[in-house]
């Protein structure tokens, strides 16, 4: 089974999926990310799916699950780089990826996380 590497950049974890995902790899990624978020105290996770050619209901559900898990661990997940054909297919399949934030690319994903963090600091007690 191939494992997807998790990279750390400042307080953001970045995952770029470059392989055709086996179900086992997706499950392993979920656990790796949860561990890494706690270990590093990351405030955000970016999952880059630019190279991903299809998302079926299993992979889609895992993206939602990862977003929910990291949110419980105080980190927001943003999925970036979804191909237009993948978006069209997901909607027709009936999968809305509820609770998953998306951005068009890595740069916009980082900007979104910074924005969310700024909003969080603004309301946090000093």
């Amino acid at each position: 089974m191939d494992r997807v590497p998790v990279l750390k950049l400042g307080d953001i974890l970045i995952v770029s999926i470059q392989i055709d995902l086996q179900d086992q790899s997706v499950l392993a990624l979920q656990e790796d990310l949860a561990d890494k978020v706690v270990q590093t105290g990351a405030r955000g996770v970016i999952i880059d799916i630019t190279a991903v050619e299809i998302i079926d209901s299993f992979i889609g559900r895992m993206l939602s699950t990862i977003a929910s898990i990291t949110r419980l661990l105080d980190a927001e997940t943003v999925v970036v780089g979804m191909r237009p054909a993948v978006a069209i297919t997901l909607v027709e399949l009936g999968l809305s990826l509820g609770g998953v934030r998306t951005a068009l690319n890595l740069e916009k994903g980082v900007a979104l996380l910074n924005h969310l963090d700024g909003a969080r600091l603004a309301v946090a007690p000093r």
């Binding site: 050619e53 299809i54 998302i55 079926d56 209901s57 299993f58 191909r83 054909a85 993948v86 069209i88 297919t89 027709e92 399949l93």
Partner: peptide, 10 residues
């Protein structure tokens, strides 16, 4: 292509 590959995966 993306639709039929996704259906095949399911």
């Amino acid at each position: 292509q993306t639709k039929i590959v996704t259906a095949a995966s399911e």
